[in-house]
Design a protein around this nucleic acid. Structure first.
Length: 591
RNA sequence: GGGGGUGUAGCUCAGUUGGUUAGAGCGCUGGCCUGUCACGCCAGAGGCCGCGGGUUCGAGUCCCGUCACUCCCGCCA
């Protein structure tokens, strides 16, 4: 007989009755009746109830074990009597009568129980991640992650993509997020950087003639965490293709994404290909965001003209000063108490905005201060434009365009949640397209790349030479699902003159560009295929499929919000010898 | 760096208007229990009420500061 097991804890059924079997696993739960003792034995695969009574020699030894100890039990499989069958357990018709038991590893008193679905503080969960991962939900999330990645790989390989590995130790580049740096021992004072993404490498793979590349790629960015952003590192399905248009990229990736989602979505509905394509500008207007949650039926409209020169003086005056007014319908809210509207206004103030105006239509008659001051005609025009019903409400965000769009978008989300308007159990995908190539950086007071500096401008070199930089669009796109940005991508620029010109507009002179991007620029000069790609976030895909609000729930060993690994104790200090080897010295800037 | 929330037993939480000795469930220790599957019953141990300062006759409770965790803003091409 095998030293540890003849079956797993999920295997035993009525066919095994009478057989002597051996199981190994964790003591999930123990029920001690004094002269009769039940153990639920758990392994990766499932649970089997084991039973022993007091006459057996090993009884005392077993009775002394704590939950989560690892044991090996040997004994005969018996059928349970009908009144003791556990219908909630796949192995619930049988049990193992323990004849022999061996303790493999004793567990101490637990800092957090594995059994049950009680919630625990995250710092304890992260410090004892190995215990946390034994719990049913976490275990299932990580198994799901494995399946999703396997499915992605299969789909990509079947679509003719090849998987390559790119360097982890590479060069820092001037744009983008903060880098993680690794000191070089052989080159004192010089550093490697961990890649923020294999962006330049995957483009160079195209220039090397490989045509269709993908990788489940680790990416490293030294940026602060969010619920959907793990600090330090994350994984992307990194994709690049040669001789493609934007439509070719969409056509290649949509079946992969839809396929993976359909495979693991269960009863949840998935947007079929092709996904709706929403220009960036339209998204900001209609949804107040470039990552709209399309499960929310509310659409924002511009109503600036209705308020221009109107009796509602606050808005009229702001419009003269360059503000716009965005209307956010709240279907069915007209019948709600005044407090609903007041609370929305308080909420807007708490978000740092001046406030949110409103009209509440009750049984066909519009109420509130705006309706009163705007006058009947204009209010009627408004109702008509927004197709408001007899008991709808509508909120107004008045501010400079970017702020108004942002506030309207936040209000759209809040109204959708508060009024429970979101289509449940659906994955709604869309492409956001036509991003601007540049944006004005208020902090630095200069024009900078808005997304990816390697994107191809729409209109090519002509556009760069003739248009206002802020009006130039790029072949740049995002996949958005349920308000989560899954991926950004672009058709890349493959011409050195466009690269130099575009970087020039962003304030990098030719010499700097030659120095910072020698590999790319050189490759452009020796025959570069037109190419493009994208990089959906793998962690976020799993997070959506697992229906988890926090990305750490789908990562085996995540760091906490302050980018510390509480289990391994990272980051940590290093020895003076270690530092000396690397030609480093720690200095105290405050001293 | 800024804003919000939380912090009471190993864990999850309650704790009234500032008032006697700070409670419950789970877990832990001991005892009883031969059909449980959140087993049951009895007993017990376990507290720097995050930390520091202040107000007060008196602070878990009020005030100030600070720390930890978390959510958000900044940041994330």
């Amino acid at each position: 007989m095998h030293a540890y097991r003849t079956h797993t804890c999920a295997d035993i059924r009525t066919d095994h009755v009478g057989e002597t079997v051996r199981l190994s696993g964790w003591v999930h739960r123990m029920r001690d009746h004094g002269n009769l003792l039940f153990i639920d034995l758990r392994d990766h695969y499932g649970l089997t109830q084991c039973v022993i009574d007091a006459d057996k020699a090993v009884f005392k030894e077993i009775e002394a074990q704590r939950a989560e100890s690892v044991i090996t039990v040997t004994g005969k499989v018996v059928k349970r009597t009908p009144d003791t069958v556990n219908a909630g357990l796949p192995t619930g018709e049988v049990e193992l009568v323990i004849k022999d038991c061996k303790l493999q590893s004793a567990a101490g008193e637990l800092p957090m129980p594995v059994f049950g679905d009680q919630e625990y503080p995250e710092d304890i969960r992260l410090r004892y991640r190995f215990l946390d991962l034994r719990r049913e939900k976490m275990h299932a999330n990580i198994v799901l992650r494995n399946k999703v990645i396997a499915s992605i790989r299969k789909r990509m390989w079947n679509a003719g993509f090849q998987e390559f590995q790119t360097p982890i130790l590479t060069a820092s580049s001037p744009e983008g997020a903060r880098d993680f740096l690794v000191p070089s021992r052989l080159h004192p004072g010089k550093f490697y950087a961990l890649p923020q993404a294999p962006q330049q490498f995957k483009q160079l793979v195209m220039m090397a003639g490989f045509d269709r590349y993908f990788q489940i790629a680790p990416c490293f960015r030294d940026e602060d965490a969010r619920a959907d952003r793990s600090p330090g590192e994350f994984y992307q399905l990194d994709v690049e293709m040669s001789f493609v248009t934007q439509d070719d990229v969409f056509a290649a990736i949509e079946p992969v994404i839809t396929g993976v989602f359909e495979e693991f979505a269960g009863d949840r509905k998935v947007t079929p290909a092709p996904y709706p394509r929403i220009p960036y500008k339209e998204a900001l207007l209609k949804y107040g965001s470039d990552k709209p949650d399309l499960r929310n039926p509310i659409e924002i409209q511009d109503v600036t003209e209705i308020f221009r020169g109107s009796g509602f003086g606050i808005f009229a005056k702001m419009i003269e000063g360059g503000a716009v007014v965005r209307a956010i319908p709240a279907p069915g809210a007209g019948g709600l108490a005044r407090s609903f509207f007041d609370k929305m206004n308080d909420w807007a103030r708490s978000e740092g905005y001046a406030g949110l105006g409103y009209i509440n239509i009750k049984d066909g008659s519009p109420g509130g201060p705006i309706a009163k001051n705007l006058g009947e005609d204009r209010t009627a025009t408004l109702r008509n434009q927004l197709s408001l019903g007899d008991n709808d409400g509508v909120f107004f965000a008045c501010a400079k365009e970017a702020d108004a769009a942002r506030l309207a978008g936040l209000a759209r989300g809040k109204i959708g949640l508060d009024l429970d308007l979101l289509a449940k159990d659906e994955f709604r995908f869309c492409w956001i397209v036509d991003y601007p190539l540049f944006e004005y950086d208020e902090a630095e007071k200069k024009i900078d790349f808005s997304h990816n500096p390697f994107s191809m401008p729409q209109g090519g070199l002509d556009a760069l030479e003739s248009k206002d930089p802020l009006d130039i669009l790029a072949y740049q796109y995002d996949i958005v699902c349920n308000g989560v940005e899954l991926s950004s991508g672009a058709i890349r620029n493959h011409l050195p003159e466009i690269m130099l010109k575009a970087f020039g507009i962003a304030g990098y002179d030719a010499e700097t560009v030659e120095k910072e991007f020698p590999g790319m620029l050189n490759a452009f000069r020796y025959g570069a295929p037109p190419h493009g790609g994208l990089a959906p976030g793998v962690d976020r895909i799993v997070m959506l499929l697992a229906d988890e609000p926090n990305i750490r729930e789908v990562i085996l060993f995540p760091m906490n919000q302050k980018a510390e690994d509480l289990m391994m104790g990272a980051p940590s200090g290093v020895s003076p010898k270690h530092l000396r080897e690397l030609n480093l010295r720690i200095i105290d800037l405050d001293a």
